[in-house]
Amino acid sequence: MLLEVRNLVKSFGGIHAVRDVSLTIERSSISAIIGPNGAGKTTFFNLLTGIYKPDSGELMFDGKSLKGLRPDQVMKMGVARTFQNIRLFHNMTVLENVMVGEHSRLRISLADTLLRTAGFSKQEQRVRQKASDLLKFVGLAGKGDETAKNVPYGDQRRIEIARALASDPKLILLDEPTAGMNPNESEDAMNLFRRIRDEFGVTVVLIEHDMKVVMGISEHIDVLDYGQKIAEGTPAQIRANPRVVEAYLGRRAVEDHAEAAE
């Protein structure tokens, strides 16, 4: 077990965004967290990565608690993420974006930086090489020198993934990684997610709305609704779960559907 979340609670001024959520993520698995809009999925990611502080609950990652850590410390522990509304460093180049992702793995000494020691140059060389390898891995070979904001939308998502991978994570959290993609692009993205797991051994968790992606790639699915976990299981189990269908379509719709069936 790589990640274990117990009884996580977070509210914003009286609104319970996440209430009493417990779930586990297996090492080297690909899992998805799904749920209707406003179900608390992104808040859950923000709690995991230290951007929000949980009101209560426990977050165990690889045997250590993530509670109370700052986002950069969480990243250093091996949890990397992407953002729903792509947050690249827009005016840095694509390559520099990925290089920033390596920050937490670097040995940064002021003296080395100012004196340009051999060690410093070697490290810079290595960082650059690794960043460009990662760009190649996500399919953006040769685009390193472009300014991030000038890159097409779909490629920006890939840069975010490369940037997250640059930190050598054990777990990568992808927040709606295929939003706005057409079926072909989604297919490519799914392949990429599989390769992340297969080639790097990184555990992948995604928030996703596209059921084709969710069902096609996840080995395990957790379903949130109104901040609560309402179901978990394999794709087949989730598809058959009436509470999940209800959460997505609403009780009325389910009843209508049932009536129509009768």
Binding site: I51, R70, D72, A80, R87, M92, M99, S167
Partner: peptide, 19 residues
């Protein structure tokens, strides 16, 4: 690079491991 990242987007910077 870390400074530029902070200037561009503090949230993304800290989430990418920049203290």
């Amino acid at each position: 690079r870390a400074w530029t990242a902070i200037r561009e987007d503090e949230v993304a910077a800290i989430a990418m491991g920049v203290p």
